[in-house]
Design a protein around this nucleic acid. Structure first.
Length: 484
RNA sequence: GGCGCCUUGGCGGAGUGGUUACGCAGAGGUCUGCAAAACCUUUUACACCGGUUCAAUUCCGGUAGGCGCCUCCA
């Protein structure tokens, strides 16, 4: 299994600390509003990562946090807490907002067939752990106090800039936002923020430094280490987290433990809509409900996500989603043909005959090999940095052969294997049930009616099946059915 | 202003120093009782300008355009 590692800036072989166990931490959602498709792109891709690790014979233990406090409007710890802001907008408390959107998020995981992580810890359930981490950092001299909180002194952590390859001096010169003037370095960030004097927060806790709430970066370090140990194998998140959030997580965690925080860092790129990034202010935050409202299935959406590589900046458009839905429909029809094996005459003729060639059976036939190749290519593509577009091309390789040559018996094993892989690794289930004996009988009757050119009877039988959700198409080899 | 990425045919999207990616859509044709498919064909695809090379879409340099992060955001 190979993955691009932000830490080393190259594609690395995954070697977990304690194989076959592999620990995976993902930065989850901040539950202050409905997630948009960009968020879901990310979570589908991490689901893919976990499923692929499993398919590679590893035993992933996946933890995804839920941020329900402390994520300020700016990632650099300025501005208002998103939860408190959301609460004001909706006329609820921050606690209500967090609960509502956390539930919505977990529902979304189910709807999109995203593997449920082993743990989905909430920041508000881990305040003591976070306070303990700040105390550790304080004891080691990494912190200082300002009027509004306890800050981390990034100049004390050697190599702070190296993970994201930051140019701190340039950052200083280019800063466009007003920062807390008490900060010693522009990159310093809050570990613990004091509650404001002028109003009462919904969420606040006592701490050795006074009443307040934890900084956003702190929760991930604390929960990751609590559930997965001081060194996690794979840490993942959106690409936007590289320069600030993950850089700060590394600084906090490694300063506290003196150990490497994560061996592999995996980042997904963002998706654009109409060539622009998704943002609340641009009003292009499409939700799952919007997708369903337009008549698209969430499976089609999932397939669309998998049609691009996770590290490329992908594009979302309704046309592209429609293309994915059409493709999915075609695939479902091919999957149905698992039940309709017909040995095409031209294959039988092309098979070698004669006693001296009796070993050269179907297995060596080029058409049979094609199926084996497709399965191999599929697996290889995914285990090589999650190359889903290439994996989908492998699926097409076999599916096109079936469409062109017919559903011959020697495609059956490859088809079944690919359908299993798609269900297991891609999370797209194309397995369908066979039609009933009665339905098969109807098809037989219709064939007979057609023989007799009794078109009225033939059409009525076809309508009868259509009402049961079975479509037919006539071919020279007979009728092929599919689920509508 | 700083840092980074990208530019492939109508759309989406891989990949490669010389051989069809793939999907969706469009056009023409074959087949067809109807329907639905299927099959075949199809528009000089790799931003532009140089360079390296026997050969570049694929490597190097530059130009133009787009995008992302530093600020709402995965």
């Amino acid at each position: 299994m190979k993955l691009y590692n932000t830490l080393t800036a190259k594609i690395d072989d995954i070697a977990p600390l304690n194989p076959p166990r592999v620990t995976v931490y993902t930065c989850g959602p901040t539950v202050y509003d409905y997630p948009h498709i960009g968020n879901w792109f990310t979570f589908i891709r991490y689901d893919l990562l976990v499923r692929t690790l499993k398919a590679a014979g590893l035993e992933p233990e996946w933890v995804m946090n839920i941020t329900d406090v402390g994520h300020l409007v700016s990632d650099a710890d300025e501005g208002e807490d998103k939860l408190e802001k959301g609460a004001r907008r909706e006329g609820k408390t921050a606690w209500d907002v967090a609960t509502f959107y956390a539930n919505y998020f977990q529902n979304g995981l189910r709807r999109l067939n995203i593997t449920r992580p082993a743990h989905l810890p909430k920041a508000t359930d881990h305040i003591p752990e976070q306070i303990a981490l700040v105390e550790q950092l304080e004891a080691k001299g990494y912190t200082y106090t300002t009027g509004d909180g306890i800050y981390y002194d990034t100049s004390k952590f050697e190599g702070y800039a190296s993970f994201a390859r930051l140019d701190l001096d340039a950052l200083q010169a280019g800063a466009r936002v007003e920062h807390n003037p008490e900060k010693r370095n522009i990159s310093d960030f809050a570990l613990w923020k004091f509650s404001p004097a002028d109003h009462q927060r919904d969420m606040e806790w006592d701490s050795p430094w006074g009443k307040g709430f934890p900084g956003w970066h702190l929760e991930c370090s604390a929960m990751c280490m609590k559930y997965l140990g001081e060194t996690v194998d794979i840490h993942s998140g959106g690409i936007d987290h590289v320069p600030v959030h993950h850089t700060n997580e590394i600084a906090q965690s490694e300063a506290a433990t003196g150990k490497r925080f994560a061996s592999y860092w995996v980042h997904t790129n963002h998706v654009t809509v109409e060539g622009e990034k998704i943002s609340k202010s641009l009003g292009n935050s499409i939700t799952l409900e919007d997708i369903e409202k337009k008549g698209f299935s969430l499976t089609a959406f999932r397939l669309h996500v998998l049609e691009s590589h996770y590290r490329s900046q992908s594009k979302f458009s309704w046309d592209a989603l429609e293309a994915a839905q059409n493709r999915l429909k075609r695939w479902q029809e091919i999957a149905d043909r698992r039940w309709q094996v017909v040995q095409p005459q031209h294959f039988l003729e092309s098979l070698p005959t004669g006693p001296e060639e009796s070993d050269k059976t179907e297995a060596e036939h080029p058409y049979t090999k094609l199926g084996t190749q497709a399965v191999a290519q599929f697996k290889h593509a995914l285990q090589n940095d999650l190359d889903t577009p290439k994996a989908l091309a492998a699926v097409e390789l076999l599916f096109a052969a079936i469409e062109q040559n017919g559903m011959a018996s020697f495609y059956l094993s490859a088809l079944t294997q690919l359908l299993q892989q798609m269900q297991y690794v891609l999370g797209i289930d194309l397995f369908s049930d066979d039609i009933t004996t009665a339905q098969k009988a109807v098809i037989g009757q219709r064939e007979a009616a057609r023989e007799n050119k009794n078109w009225a009877a033939s059409d009525s039988l076809r309508d009868q099946l259509q009402a049961q959700g079975i479509g037919l198409r006539d071919t020279p080899q007979g009728a092929i059915w599919y689920h509508l």
